[in-house]
Design a protein around this nucleic acid. Sequence first.
DNA 1: AAAAATAGTTGACAAAATCAACTATTTTTA
DNA 2: TAAAAATAGTTGATTTTGTCAACTATTTTT
Lengths: 154, 154
Amino acid sequence: MTKSTIFIVLGMQKKHVADIRAFNRFYTGVLGLLDQHILDSRYSLPEVRVLYELYHSVNLTASEIIAILRIDKGYLSRMLLQFQKKKLVSKKWSARDGRAAHLSLTEKGRNEFEALNEASNRQIKDILERLTEDDCNILVGHMTGIRTILSKTK
Amino acid sequence: MTKSTIFIVLGMQKKHVADIRAFNRFYTGVLGLLDQHILDSRYSLPEVRVLYELYHSVNLTASEIIAILRIDKGYLSRMLLQFQKKKLVSKKWSARDGRAAHLSLTEKGRNEFEALNEASNRQIKDILERLTEDDCNILVGHMTGIRTILSKTK
DNA sequence: AAAAATAGTTGACAAAATCAACTATTTTTA
DNA sequence: TAAAAATAGTTGATTTTGTCAACTATTTTT
């Protein structure tokens, strides 16, 4: 490797850092726009994330949700209390561990989540419909590519 | 186009929507991790965004910042007051429009922002250093590709 | 059996964000 | 050009969101 190559490589990293940060700012905006419909709904972002977890795995405990979402346990406890009041979530104390309780969405809870979920899908569809089929494929390819590469760094 | 092709295309869109939402969840986590160092700093995320705008263009007015970041004007007004108290920002009433004021980072403000900025760069570098050179190039290519495609939809 | 760890709840509080009312200008319009 | 409407920014009141620490009740470790 020649001196000039080293220079190019070192210079390139700076460019890469700048490009990645530009992407991060850009995509923060995209996510913010997409989150808008949730902020307009009756639920906050953290609430929707909790509902998401409850929807996708049954009988989670609060501790498990805390581990997944890295959310404060007091905050979660109160959130779950609200959910129970609204009949979105039911709680059953564990037979095996008297400290833990298993949480599930009720029928109403699943319906609520599905409505939010459908609205989110709709938003993405609206974006895709403004693109050519090729661009859709390329876009998704890029996203999958990013996930693949960044998942290696664990 | 045959019936089965239509089926594949329609089916594909659902898959694309799911893939994009999976990416959004994934990247929300990435951004959250990257934001951590800011949350550990003396500044909040909105504060850093405002500092970012002030750093990158001189003599912005509060209204311009509001238009860019879509932030509440009362919230911003108070934030700017804090910045002035900390001598990070200086304000000069406009000669042309007596309602508007031009904002600038002070030397201290620029220094503060640059420190935060350097820490952010460091984080990205740390990630890149765990990747091969090829993966770095591919990663940045994907990000640029996403920006290009999504910028078309405006 | 005692000590340490874990699950979850609760109270007190702090930070973040929103909303509406208000002053002082500038722009529009009739 | 005078009145009305719009805009820039400030301030007060309030709500929402999130954090921290103390606490009870279990379970696990030593």
